[in-house]
Amino acid sequence: MTAALAITKLQLRIIRNDPWFLLIMFLMPLVVMPLFVKTLGLGLVASGFESASGAEVVVPGQVVLFGFFVGGSVGFALYREHGWKTWDRLRASAAPSRSLLAGFAVPWTVIHVAYQLILFLAGGLALGLRFNGGSPFALVLVAVGYGACIVALVLLVSASFRTINQVNAFQNVGAMALGGLGGALVPLEQLPGWAQAIAPVTPQYWAMRGFRGVFLESASIVDVLPSAAVLFGTAAVLSLLAARRFRADETKEFFA
């Protein structure tokens, strides 16, 4: 636990010393969100949500889309240790592999969840996103589930791949393809039938379903439990797989 805690604090300190990536990840969706509000708002009205502004799907969509990059940064952080040649120094502490992994997973899950919540807050301030009777606790529950799920997914990918380029490629394709399929780019009901059919295999689908429930359908904690259960369950399975697959003594290649 000592090593996990030390590495957790290290990750947070590194971000504090070099916050530019996160700042850009905050600014990007704030620029993109207003571009889609009106169009997607019309779609929601046409779907029967007469008082919807569009922010109810645009903000969660951008949170889910860009959140994948933020949560996925755990892979970059892990590989960066190899690039900085500090990985062996961490290993020399003799911390078990699972402690090392936890030292990366925990802070990046926390950062991912905080990122989502701050973006929702910004969406409220900038685009008038309101709960409309939905539960803030339900929002937090889904955000934590999504945060844990994405971090676990990218940890599994990072444990399985050998180079940072492979991890980056997965992140880029994963964010767009899984996000698109999950309804983060356009609302699910506007996707083709085949996409709607396979959407539930993506964590993004369950996150979007939970978030939309909170903002469009006044969902309570109980209402979002199915989404949260899938997200937490998937996170648990992916974490176990990542822990099984992860080998601390495996060589990873950062940028040459």
Partner: peptide
């Protein structure tokens, strides 16, 4: 490991942290 300190052949430090933060991190570890 608690009895042992190793400086591997390849230089490995955290470039975005200060000297103090680097040293304190390895102490905390």
């Amino acid at each position: 490991a608690k009895l042992l300190g190793i400086a591997p052949q390849d230089t490995g430090i955290y470039t975005v942290l200060t000297v103090r933060q680097n040293l304190e991190f390895f102490g905390e570890l």
